[in-house]
Design a protein around this nucleic acid. Sequence first.
DNA 1: AGCCAGGACAAGT
DNA 2: ACTTGTCATGGC
Length: 260
Amino acid sequence: MTALEFDAVDLDLIAESGQCFRWQRIGDGRYAIPLGGGVYEARQLSPTAVIFSGPGDEEAVAGAMRAYFDWGADYASLTALADGDDYLRAALAHARGLRILRQPLWETLCSFIVSQNNNIPRIRGILERLCGGALSPFPGPEAVRALGEAGLRALGTGYRAPYLLAAAERFSEAEARALCGLGYAQARSRLCGYTGVGGKVADCVCLFALGHKSAFPRDVWMKRVLAEQYPEGFPLLDHPQSGVLQQAMFVYARALAKRC
DNA sequence: AGCCAGGACAAGT
DNA sequence: ACTTGTCATGGC
């Protein structure tokens, strides 16, 4: 068991933020997180601290969770960007404790291919079936390839099955290294070369796996926010952390809609 | 019972 | 460079 202190962290908020689809709620403020072949457990200790356990010794767990939870990144100072912007200020206040997770590249790519024109509960179900269990490790490209298009369709992926197959055929360790070595624009462009991966999915991979916080995914929720709140354009679109702002607004917009 | 969903793509203006 | 139709599927 090891505790990590953050400027702010909110497991419930992160779990519902639409960036990760395989967290399992196992109790009040407690989650099981399948990651890298093992399963970690996270428990909310306070608004600024989480207790972790997982495979390996304390140092290994702490290291893995620091990386995964973007430990040390400063999210609080983003509040200053919202001066004179009531919507962004409210979104950031609502999203206090949100973190941009640094998730495995292949899993993130597959997850957001599955996500297209799909809803979050259903994405969860498909990915769970793809993994063969709620806490089972995510299958590698060769395992996905072995399923074939028919096998993938049987999981409920629908027309996305050939997209997953194409990704499985292109992805490799060398490809992963190449993607990790690129800047945001280059990585995005390379990802868009995958059939079935467009700008939105590529941005999600850049933001949630590659750590490019200037990536700004535009899903239907964000398009609505931009149209309704920023008809003249979102002024911070080119900010190096615009992706974090995007994620705060995404979570906030969905929370507002649910409240009606 | 429809409407909708963290879209991509091809075909038409 | 923009709009539109189409693509599976099931949660709500």
